[in-house]
């Protein structure tokens, strides 16, 4: 203030001598001259690049993170799926498949047993079976209409056990898995963030690669062969699929899998090798 004061006074004294000269402002320094469009594109490109890098890293971390998720933590994630899939259980069929499954589980290693694999049949016309995180195999009754014998059902279950063993059901969630894991870990199972991410993952159709399917097929084949000394279930199941018209429901379900003929080929090869 001490410095400003004399200046201020001086100005006031002089003010009456100041002549007002009207002058238009020709240059507006308040506004930086830039093209808003150009700026918008540069910023958008930067943002997209960052998102892309993040998305890419997220994709890379899926296969890295999946084997490190403990069965207990997986059960926590799995609880999220219950509402969506547990609606109308078919008790009789569940019981039948549970017996087959328990029989199969006698043949798997301890590590796979630790997942606490269960099976549940839902009354639903969909021809589908899903391996949920947490170890539950949900089989829709639509699928059981197509496959009737216990041997074939055993192959389906063994195939899903193979997915669990390889953690395919976690990898299949893709990038959503990383976000979901982080959210459950940081904010808990029932938080707003977790539910939001879970709802955003969408219809949760697990996408398995053909390689993963082949591995699950071969795992199933070996498991059943070790248990029973034969592999009829696998071969006849493949025959059932292969015999279906391409447009039929069953082959629609297996569209994400390798072609039935290809599956039959490598399964027969493997069976020949076993003998």
């Amino acid at each position: 203030m001490a410095v400003l004061r004399p200046l201020h006074t001086e100005l006031l004294l002089n003010i009456k001598m100041i002549k007002f000269t009207p002058k238009t402002v020709t240059e507006n320094l308040n506004i930086v001259k830039t093209s808003p469009l150009k700026q918008c594109f540069i910023l958008l490109a930067g943002l997209l690049a960052i998102i892309f890098v993040f998305y890419f890293l997220l994709g890379l971390s899926v296969s890295w993170i999946a084997p490190h998720i403990s069965p207990a933590f997986e059960k926590k994630i799995g609880r999220l799926f219950e509402d969506r899939f547990y609606q109308n259980e078919n008790m009789d069929e569940s019981k039948r498949l549970r017996a087959i499954l328990n029989n199969l589980l006698k043949g798997v290693d301890e590590e796979t047993k630790a997942f606490g694999i269960e099976v549940r049949v839902e009354n639903n016309p969909m021809i589908n079976a899903v391996a949920l995180p947490g170890g539950t195999i949900v089989v829709f009754s639509g699928l059981l209409k197509e496959i009737k014998s216990d041997n074939e059902a055993a192959f389906v279950l063994a195939h899903e056990i193979g997915h669990f063993k390889n953690r395919d059901h976690l990898k299949g969630l893709g990038r959503g898995l990383v976000l979901l894991t982080a959210s459950v870990f940081l904010t808990g199972n029932d938080s707003i963030a977790t539910n939001f991410i879970f709802s955003q993952i969408g219809n949760l159709e697990m996408k398995f690669s053909r390689k993963q399917e082949k591995e699950a097929d071969l795992f199933a084949l070996h498991l059943i062969y070790d248990m029973t000394g034969q592999a009829d279930g696998a071969a006849s199941f493949m025959k059932v699929i292969a015999s279906q018209d391409k447009r039929s429901n069953l082959s629609y379900y297996f569209a994400s899998h390798p072609h039935p003929e290809t599956r039959m080929e490598y399964i027969n090869e493997e069976i020949a090798g076993l003998r």
Partner: peptide, 25 residues
């Protein structure tokens, strides 16, 4: 709406929020 969008982008990276300059001016 365009300025709102541009300003939200500029809010991410910082710097001159040119989108609002003409508004205030």
């Amino acid at each position: 709406y365009f300025k709102r969008f541009l300003s939200s982008l500029q809010n991410i990276f910082g710097g001159n929020v040119t989108a609002y300059q003409t508004l205030v001016d």
